[in-house]
């Protein structure tokens, strides 16, 4: 069995919105501890991983299941969430459906057909990074949007004094500098000066659900995939994006 109740459907919508920009389908691995899922995007450039501890739910009851879901359908349903709706997710094993219920003045139940997916063997690899930057999510997101004016990729640079988001177009370029003591930077731990290029569309998709108050942890190295971590609605999200290499 599986049944979980979340306080805010609207908050969880941000998670589904973000994940569904990168993936078409997902297999939730549900057990008594919570829910996990990870998968590569179809082009194998990005990896998405999410973890929903049972504490993120008001009520939670589950034994082990793999629940395969079409994310386009899930996103459409979550877009119907209203601000005071509670979210109930429950597995209907007889009908082979995942029920998504919005509870407010009444109950609205959407039943999604389960996909026959098996849990991904792809997990976030345990890579050691020389540099870890904690930055206010909206500051980083805005810098990416600025960079998007002139280029389709962005260069992320870090040294012991600052973190820099740089974009170079054919004619124009953009630079956002976040000094170590600026209010956007929570912490800047740099062991090795770094400069790496990443696709902007992917990065912007990865931070789609971020709003002011959210903090992003950026793991950066030279010629390494960038790793982003943040939490939304009690859900821990991790993204890995392969670099562009000269």
């Amino acid at each position: 069995m599986f049944r979980g109740v979340m306080e805010s459907a609207k908050e969880f919508k941000k998670v589904v919105d973000t994940v569904s920009t990168l993936l078409d389908e997902i297999c939730f691995e549900v057990d008594e501890e919570g829910i996990k899922a990870s998968a590569m995007d179809p082009s194998h450039v990005a990896l998405v991983s999410l973890e929903i501890p049972r504490l993120a739910f008001e009520e939670y009851e589950a034994d082990s299941h793999e629940i395969g879901i079409d994310l386009e359908a899930f996103k459409k349903v979550m877009n119907r969430a209203k601000s005071k709706d509670k979210l109930i997710l429950e597995l209907d094993e007889e009908k082979n459906k995942l029920n998504i219920i919005f509870e407010n003045t009444g109950k609205r139940k959407f039943s999604l057909a389960l996909l026959d997916l098996s849990a991904s063997s792809v997990k976030v690899p345990d890579i050691e990074y020389p540099n870890v930057i904690m930055i206010k999510g909206d500051a980083f997101k805005e810098a990416l949007k600025d960079a998007d004016l002139f280029s389709d990729y962005v260069i992320l640079k870090a040294d012991e004094d600052k973190f820099v988001v740089h974009a170079k177009g054919d004619l124009n370029d953009f630079n956002a500098e976040f000094e170590k003591d600026s209010s956007a930077i929570i912490s800047l731990e740099v062991k090795e000066e770094t400069k790496s290029a990443f696709n902007l569309d992917y990065l912007m998709d990865m931070v789609k659900g971020v709003s002011s108050g959210d903090i992003i942890k950026i793991y950066l190295g030279n010629d390494m995939p960038v790793k982003l971590e943040y939490s939304l609605a009690g859900v821990n999200l991790t993204f890995l994006l392969a670099p562009r290499i000269e």
Partner: peptide, 14 residues
Amino acid sequence: KSKQVKLSDFFKMR
């Protein structure tokens, strides 16, 4: 010009 690598290439390289 830089070239997009895949995560799978990257993990194989390591």
